[in-house]
Each structure stands twice: as C-alpha cells, then as structure tokens.
Amino acid sequence: MFNPDIIKPENLVYKRTDVLTQAVMHYCPGCGHGTTHRIIAEVIEEMGIQDKAICVAPVGCSVLAYNYFNVDSLGAAHGRAPAIATAIQRLYPDRYTFTYQGDGDLAAIGTAETIHACNRGENIVIVFINNGIYGMTGGQMAPTTLIGMKTATSPYGRTVELNGYPLQITELLAELPGTYYVTRQSVQTAAAVRKTKKAIRQAFENQKNKKGTSFVEVVSNCNSGWKMTPVQANKWMEENMFVKYPIGDIKVDGQKVK
C-alpha cells in the first residue's frame, strides 16, 4: 500500500455491496458470473429494493446464485425459472422478481418457459448469461455454442449437419410483443461492465413501471470450458462470440432498434 493515509470513508470510490452475502463465490477465477452478480446486487442496492427483490436461480453454474444474492431467493428446476418468476410477480405485483439463467437453462431445456413468459409480457427481469457452453457439467455443447467450437460433446467442433445452428434466442425474444426491453451486453472490460449495469438498472426501472418483460443477455466467458486463461478467454470472446452475438440494444421501450 502506497498511500494508507487516504483510506478513509470520505475518500471511498468503490466497495463491494452488502446486497451480496459474504460467501465466497464458487465460480472459476475470472468468470463473468461473479461480475454480473455483483452489478445486479449493486443495482438492487442503488434502487433501494433489497426488501422487495426476489431472485430465481437456475440449474447450471449459477445454481448456487441464491447463496450470493442477499435477497430472498428460490432455486428453480432446470429451465423453469421464468414460470416460477411469473407466479411470484403475479402474486406480489410490487416485487422485483428476476431470474438469472445460463444458456442451457434458458435456451435449451427452458425454451418453452422463456418464450411464453416473454410472450405474456410478464413483468419480470431475465438476466441471461451466454457463454456458449455447459460449464457446470463439464463443458458440453450448449444451444449457443458457435459453429466449429470444441466442447465435450462436440469434440471435433460443432457442425451444422450434426448439431444445427447456434441459437440467437435473444433476437427471437425481441420479436415477441411482450418483451419491452431486450439488450445484449458483456462484462469483460470496465466500460462494458458500466454499460451492462446501466442495462440492468433499466430493466429493473421498467419493472418498477410495470412495462413487461425486460431481458438482458450477458455474453460471457467460460475460461475453464474454453480451456483458456481468463484474459485469453475475454479476448477470444470479443473476437468470436461477439460476431454471432453482437453487443448492443435490440429492443428499447417496446420498439426494435434499427
């Protein structure tokens, strides 16, 4: 430490939010889950809605998300989080129910629940982590795995012939009239994190104003699954994932962005 004299509360620029618990997250070093958790928690703190926020955690790497968000939480069966959130938000319309789901959970096994919750325009926030792989089960192919990408169940690289195309579910959901806000962001740089946090804030503000479904995709890394260092993985993500999953707003205020 070079300047211990400036370590004073009045000089504080940034500290970890108390809307995260003290539990050490189980995520691999450098995983975007942790960063995304953090900024969701920060938004909840800044909006002063910790007592009204309800987290619905998925099955996948973030299955234990409920241990980290210091808000009332439920662990969903695989893919069913949007159905669970639907009921909670309808039964408690003044709450801030959000789901936190990965690509397998949201875009494979839970496709029906996702599409129908969005199509009904449920007043919920869905945060979707897309890292193109099944991390928790050991790096198998996801619906969002890129063509050519090697995974445990596409060891020679994903092919269209065998596995079909990477699913751009976010674009698909933007077509539904029930979605009010659909955006795709990332968390690999400070600037990207700030933008993603702004998007998450927007999503919760929409929920406050009862606008319908807000959907925030976060394109993320899986350095373990991709077999890279965290820094390499972020670079690979920018060069490859962003081509298929371009960053930016897809639908704002109920209107698709041209």
Binding site: L74, A77, A83, I88, L91, A112, E113
Partner: peptide
C-alpha cells in the same frame, strides 16, 4: 400456463413465496 410443466413450476414459485 403453456404446459403442465410450467403450471407446476408456477405453483412452486407461488408456494415458495
């Protein structure tokens, strides 16, 4: 709901709350 799978999970959500 869109299916029985979804309705029972809606029950899970409501009951959990």
């Amino acid at each position: 709901a869109e299916s029985e799978t979804s309705s029972i999970n809606m029950v899970y959500g409501g009951a959990g709350a």
